[in-house]
Structures are given as structure tokens and as C-alpha cells.
């Protein structure tokens, strides 16, 4: 239909000017080589300076440019156009479920609040050794597939449970990190960590639909980590009682 043209439908919203968000159509020359979505956004920004999006490392490490690309969350900087283009069309939207600040920039406050809730740091009150707290290779292996998370929020914002209860359901990204510390042999606050997750919402709102696994740009498996947390909670008899308070 477009031949050598590429149609990009871009979500636009500037709260200072627009009453409602809208989709704006850009038609550009199809790049001669396969470029990344982030490069495509740079091309569009040359045409329209008002387009807003986050970016930093442009190599899939910082997690800044998470967005919804043709209906699937991903990092713009490591997603080639060829892998998503359909009939010469690409649709770019902000990460779903979070408030939009402007165009593709979302307010990540709720996402970070959940991350903060799981206390993402080593808790060990014993006297620190002179050099470092040692782990056996087997203990260290348990952290593989957990510590690599870059907090891009692609997983949590593709999770319906997080859309409906972002204030109560911790979400796949933060739960992956929660398990990262639960599985760490150096962390001594396992009981307290589990107690903080034992209400009906924090972990148990995960129904295992695995959207998180499907979209994770780092190939991680938050669903497996959530399953491990549930197993630990079942073994841990110290469940706390919370009220509904929706």
C-alpha cells in the first residue's frame, strides 16, 4: 500500500495543549537498512520536534525507552523495525496502565513505589566481614535470571493485575526483585520479606497469564520467580492478616 513508505501511528498527548490523547500519522521514507524503533523515533523527531520520549543508553541496558510497539511492550532501542512492522505500519504507544505525562513518557511513580515496597537491598545485620560476604558458586547460581532486571517496566505494564491494582499488586518486575533477595543466601530477612508479601494482593493477584515472560526484553521469567515466592509463602506459616481496603 505504501511501497517504499513507512507509516508510523504515534500516540500524542500534551496535557498543556490537548484535551484528549490522539494518534498522529507520520509517513516517512522506508529506511534502507533495518534500524531500531528508537532510531525511527529520532527520524520522526527531526520532522516534528514536539515528539517526547525517554531514552538514554540506546543499547538495552538502562530500560528508559520501554513502550508499546504494535501492541507488545518492548525496548525501542533493541527492537528492529523488521521484527514488528506489519503491512508497512508501526503503531507506538506509551506503556499501558501508567499515567501519561506526555506522548510516550509515562509517570512511573506507582511502579517505583512497588519496587521500594519490597526493600530491594541486602538486609544482614550481622557484623560485616573485612572484605565481603562470601557465597558458594551454587548459592550465587540461584541469582542468575533475577539480578539482570533493568526495571524497564515492560512486564508490569503488560500485566492486567497491575493495571487494575497498581497500588496493591507488587507486579512482576518488583516480585522478580523480591525473589532475588529471598533467594540470596546473604540476606537474613526472609521471614519479614515473606510476611510483607503474604496478603491477598501483593503476590496472589498474579494469575500466571505470563504476559510478563512474553514481553521481557532481557528474556527473564518473573512468573517463575512469583511461583517460587508462592512456594516459600506456603511453607512459611507466618501469614499476616490484612483487611480488604480496596
Amino acid at each position: 500500500m505504501f511501497g517504499n513508505k513507512l507509516q508510523v501511528n504515534l500516540y500524542r498527548y500534551n496535557p498543556e495543549e490537548d484535551k484528549f490523547p490522539y494518534m498522529k500519522k507520520y509517513v516517512i521514507e522506508k529506511p534502507k537498512r533495518d534500524i531500531m524503533i528508537l532510531d525511527l523515533l529520532h527520524l520522526l523527531k527531526e520532522e516534528d520536534q514536539s515528539i517526547s520520549y525517554r531514552r538514554s543508553c540506546r543499547e538495552g541496558v538502562c530500560g528508559s525507552d520501554g513502550m508499546n510497539i504494535n501492541g507488545k511492550n518492548g525496548l525501542a532501542c533493541i527492537t528492529p523495525i523488521s521484527s514488528v512492522v506489519k503491512r508497512n505500519k508501526i503503531e507506538l504507544r506509551p506503556l499501558p496502565g501508567l499515567p501519561v505525562i506526555r506522548d510516550l513518557v509515562v509517570d512511573m511513580t506507582e511502579f517505583y513505589a512497588q519496587y521500594e515496597k519490597i526493600k530491594p537491598f541486602l538486609q544482614n545485620e550481622t557484623t560485616a566481614p573485612e572484605q565481603e560476604r562470601l557465597q558458594s558458586p551454587e548459592e550465587r547460581d540461584k541469582l542468575d535470571g533475577l539480578y539482570e532486571c533493568i526495571l524497564c517496566a515492560c512486564c508490569s505494564t503488560s500485566c492486567p493485575s497491575f493495571w487494575w491494582n497498581p497500588d496493591k499488586f507488587v507486579g512482576p518486575a518488583a516480585l522478580l526483585q523480591a525473589y532475588r533477595f529471598l533467594a540470596d543466601s546473604r540476606d537474613l530477612k526472609t521471614e519479614e520479606r515473606l510476611e510483607a508479601l503474604s496478603d491477598p494482593f501483593s503476590v496472589y493477584r498474579c494469575h500466571g497469564i505470563m504476559n510478563c515472560v512474553n514481553v521481557c526484553p532481557k528474556g527473564l521469567n518473573p512468573n517463575k520467580a512469583i511461583g517460587e515466592i508462592k512456594s516459600m509463602l506456603h511453607k512459611n506459616k507466618k501469614d499476616i492478616i490484612v483487611t480488604d481496603g480496596v
Binding site: 503474604s198 496478603d199 496472589y204
Partner: peptide
């Protein structure tokens, strides 16, 4: 209410 109780039930 306990999360694990609801889940197990």
C-alpha cells in the same frame, strides 16, 4: 484475610 488461604481454597 490470608492470601495463601484464599489461593489454596
Amino acid at each position: 484475610m490470608r492470601g495463601s488461604l484464599i489461593w489454596n481454597s
